[in-house]
Design a protein around this nucleic acid. Structure first.
Lengths: 333, 333
DNA sequence: ATTATCAAATGAACCGTTTCATTTTTTAAT
DNA sequence: ATTAAAAAATGAAACGGTTCATTTGATAAT
């Protein structure tokens, strides 16, 4: 492998000069610069970024750990962050923890031992997690989508409770009373807050009933299973509020299998507005998250931490969801 | 930051000994090993993997470049590869090229300048691509999903033509005659081969007509647009064969907007069998790819290259698709 | 007690860059 | 032509590990 020394020799200059050319230092004569560029071309030299990073103490890489790559919400989040980071010269290494705190730990340990300059993480478990590992992260670090209890770090998050509340109020305004909630895992903060929003709306209208609550996972399968549970334990309901769109998708499947349709009176509202929600039959009414922008914002906060010398207190950015009304909610007469 | 030197000092041994402990070398006494382990704990030391990699010439990282993270097919492919690689002690860095050859080049350049020991790539453009950059890749390297013309490297691929052929034959057997094809971009080999399968089936039954062919992109939006084109230029057709499931999803949307349904006679068949295809209305008949296994196989080939000394000729693994019959195809009377 | 043998520990050299104090060359001023 | 000042080039040290030839220490045999 040809190294900077080889280039120096070929060009007849010192390694320092080659390094300068590589780093766009202007204190090198045009003549020498050209000689170096020639040599680089001739020998097809490419700098070893490992060595460069070791020397510089900077890698120009950023890690992004997500809990579930098969939920379209997360790729979209990543895209928002990547687009900005890439344009600033940072590469993004994406890691999928599969909602497994152990894998998450592994990735954190690996990435933070000098592979990256900064880290964005959409955490898996936010409730029972040992936050020690997060506190040990010394480099710039932003949390997105879910807040980790007790951890005071830069954060980008949606107002989950409010979004859920508005979705449920929408259902109530349409005349629905018996509104079940199919939510995510108890260990996920998003599930907890969306549940809280549902509860608030239900209580304000004296509709709350513990039997209407179903805890599961943020997946299609889980949505399907929960909805079957609903039918088994409650019979027919007026509507379901699902804590994300994948759950809604599974639930719609179960609703159909039970020969119910929206016009029969089972309305459904989701959360996220992933790209395929508008293509479902019926198109899904859902709380839209500004997903791409959230990713971008997380990246912005991270960039500020990575490049600014000045320190500032952790910032908490709360964005708002927006109810997208489609036809999965019927007017109840 | 505490380094190996600090540990050596704290433990009262040499750096060589500390390094041995770190690398599970057995020629170190229990007493010394314990002293080192104590020191590591006490100072919360973590080896710098950058330095280690530079020294060892190995990073234990693998790169995986995909063209479209929002197509669920690719995350599934990655999952198959990651699961195996992770279990062998390799980390996977996922990079999304967004079907942009320039981004692809960027990632290749970045990753191969010493960040990784091996690379898996699902290429974007396979037809007009300058393959120079691929030929320059010196480290172990496996191509998956799409073959790059003129490049003789390890490859894992599905028999696209055959899969498409069988799908179209299925449609023909069900009595359909005017079968349009909505395909992907001309630059993608998968699109080309699936088109070839369609063409073969059509010609064998004297049904081929150039007007039935629509080239687009592998996305929902493109599927929607192409299907609108179909209606505009051909009026009603008997069926459509779409070259992936996302196109099918978009097409179904357009079909519905035009007040046609499957029972009216517009049948549809997709390709991939992404996880949501069975949840569509109607559930989508499609050619299932063994996606997870393809990812795993690609990883296996890569591992063999990375860890074996013995060289072998490039291997080409061709897997078969399987038609999954659901209700999006009606019997034509 | 001396020596041979073997296991364990050592530390300098190296991996491929950047950095910066020092030296050399060029330019401008007299 | 000489000198001062400025610009460019140099190369050794550093980044944080691993490796391996050499040294040290322990054990066994005589």
């Amino acid at each position: 492998m040809v190294t900077i020394k080889g280039i120096a020799k070929e060009a007849g200059v010192s390694v320092g000069t080659v390094s300068k050319v590589l780093n766009y230092d202007r204190t090198v004569t045009v003549k020498n610069r050209n000689k170096v560029i020639e040599a680089i071309k001739k020998l097809n030299y490419r700098p070893n970024r490992l060595a460069r990073s070791l020397s510089k103490g900077k890698t120009k890489n950023v890690g992004f750990i997500i809990p579930d790559i098969s939920n379209p919400f997360f790729p979209e989040l990543v895209r928002g962050a990547s687009d900005l980071l890439l344009s600033e010269g940072y590469y993004v290494f994406l890691c999928n923890s599969d909602n497994d705190p152990n894998k998450e730990d592994m990735y954190i340990n690996d990435l933070t031992s000098m592979w990256i300059d900064g880290l964005i993480i959409a955490p898996s478990d936010t409730e029972n997690r040992d936050i020690g590992i997060f506190k040990q992260i010394l480099l710039p670090f932003v949390v997105v989508d879910r807040e980790i209890k007790g951890l005071n770090k830069d954060l980008v998050i949606i107002n989950n409770k409010k979004g859920a509340y508005e979705a449920v109020v929408h259902l109530i305004n349409k005349g629905h009373k018996k509104i079940a909630i199919l939510t995510g895992p108890k260990y996920a903060q998003t599930a907890q807050y969306r549940y809280a929003g549902w509860k608030k709306a239900m209580e304000e209208n004296s509709l709350f009933d513990d039997k209407l609550v179903f805890w599961g996972k943020f997946s299609i399968d889980s949505g399907y299973n929960m909805m079957r549970e609903v039918f088994k334990s409650l019979g027919k309901v007026d509507a379901v509020f699902t804590c994300n769109d994948l759950i809604a998708l599974g639930a719609m499947q179960a609703i159909e299998e039970n020969k119910f349709t929206i016009s029969d009176g089972i309305s459904i509202v989701g959360f996220d507005d992933i790209y395929l929600s508008k293509f479902l039959k019926p198109p899904l009414t859902t709380v839209k998250q500004p997903t791409y922008e959230m990713g971008k914002t997380a990246a912005k906060l991270l960039l500020e931490r990575m490049e600014n010398i000045k320190e500032c207190l952790p910032r908490k950015i709360v964005v708002e969801g927006k109810l997208i009304v489609r036809s999965s909610v019927a007017q109840k007469t």
